[in-house]
Amino acid sequence: MNKPAPIVAELGRPETPEETAARKAASSRAYQSSQNVRSLIAALIVTLAVLVVIVFAVPRGEPASAPHIDVAAIAADVESTMDRPVVVPDLDDGFWRVNAAELTSGNPVVWDVTIAPSGEDERGFIKLSQAFDADSSWAPQRLNGVAATDTITIAGREWDVYRTGDKGDEQNITYAIGTQAGPDYVLLRGSRSAESTGDVAEDLSAQLESLSEER
């Protein structure tokens, strides 16, 4: 004898086969949904755990400092190669550091030194270029065709002034000055102020006078 189907309280009667199937399907969906939520939470926990391991496993410390460039040693090599003196920025006060120093081949050959402030609160750079056996007609080659528009006297020496304007934007050059020193033309250009560039020019005065005597 078949056992009568139980009466469902919500219905007040036994379930029909269709209602039983629908109830079981809804229960299955609810179970699957809960499993998906649990899986998602578990995945997030694992991800966070891996992140924590990475954060604490990576060595801490100060960023690697820029390599030291021995500009005096490089300048000595260039002087030996060119058989003539080269101009070297004054770094004695510790304000400036050298970012690059090299001899650039071409016509003319150029001794290039890039300096930047060593302090974290200072920005900008100045590039010193000593073009061997050249004059002011060479400078526009390094300044996108900009020619001198004025002159300024620094420590008794006359310097050509180049106002680069929009043409200097690509190289981040906002100001440049140049002077003839014996057989060579020395150009200072960069993103520092006219005053800062003038200070560098003044520091170079003795070396430039020495070069002038070579002519």
Score class of each variant (00 low, 15 high):
Asp150Thr: 08
Val46Asn: 01
Glu213Met: 13
Leu188Ala: 12
Val161Gly: 04
Ile41Ser: 00
Glu15Ile: 05
Asp121Trp: 12
Ile69Leu: 09
Leu48His: 00
Leu51Gln: 09
Leu211Asp: 06
Gln130His: 06
Leu143Asn: 12
Ala139Lys: 02
Thr151Ser: 13
Ser129Ala: 13
Asn172Ala: 15
Ile41Glu: 05
Tyr162Cys: 04
Val109Cys: 00
Tyr175Ser: 10
Lys24Ile: 07
Glu202Ala: 13
Ile69Phe: 14
Asp160Leu: 10
Pro85Glu: 04
Asp135Gln: 02
Tyr162Gln: 02
Trp96Ala: 04
Gly145Leu: 14
Val87Tyr: 02
Glu62Asn: 11
Glu62Asp: 08
Glu19Thr: 13
Ser191Ile: 10
Glu120Tyr: 00
Tyr175Thr: 11
Ala76Ser: 14
Asp83Leu: 13
Ala155Gln: 12
Glu10Pro: 02
Val186Asn: 04
Ala201Ile: 12
Ala75Lys: 06
Thr197Pro: 03
Asp199Met: 10
Val53Met: 06
Gly178Lys: 00
Asn144Lys: 14
Trp111Tyr: 03
Thr179Ile: 14
Ser105Met: 11
Ser105Lys: 05
Arg23Pro: 09
Gly124Cys: 13
Asp135Lys: 04
Gln35Ala: 07
Asn107Thr: 15
Ser137Lys: 13
Leu128His: 00
Gly124Pro: 04
Asp90Phe: 04
Arg123Phe: 08
Thr179Cys: 10
Thr174Gln: 10
Gln35Tyr: 03
Pro59Ser: 02
Ser118Asn: 10
Ser65Ala: 11
Gly178His: 09
Gly156His: 03
Asp77Cys: 06
Asn172Tyr: 07
Val146Cys: 07
Ala131Cys: 09
Asn36Gly: 04
Val71Arg: 09
Ala75Thr: 01
Gln130Tyr: 02
Asp166Lys: 00
Val78Tyr: 03
Asn99Gln: 09
Glu170Lys: 15
Leu188Gly: 14
Phe56Cys: 07
Ser27Gln: 15
Trp138Lys: 03
Asn144Leu: 07
Val200Met: 04
Leu211Cys: 01
Ala72Val: 15
Ala49Ser: 07
Arg60Lys: 15
Val146Ala: 12
Trp96Leu: 02
Ala73Glu: 01
Ala26Gln: 13
Ile54Lys: 02
Gly156Ile: 02
Ser205His: 13
Ser193Pro: 00
Ala116Ser: 07
Val87Gly: 02
Ile126Ser: 07
Leu11Val: 06
Ala43Asp: 07
Pro17Cys: 11
Arg215Tyr: 01
Asp199Ile: 15
Ser193Lys: 03
Ser33Val: 14
Glu15His: 09
Arg29Trp: 11
Thr104Arg: 08
Val78Arg: 01
Ser193Leu: 01
Ala57Cys: 08
Pro63Ala: 12
Thr151Met: 10
Arg189Asp: 15
Gly156Ala: 06
Ser137Pro: 03
Ser205Leu: 03
Ser34Pro: 05
Gln171Ser: 10
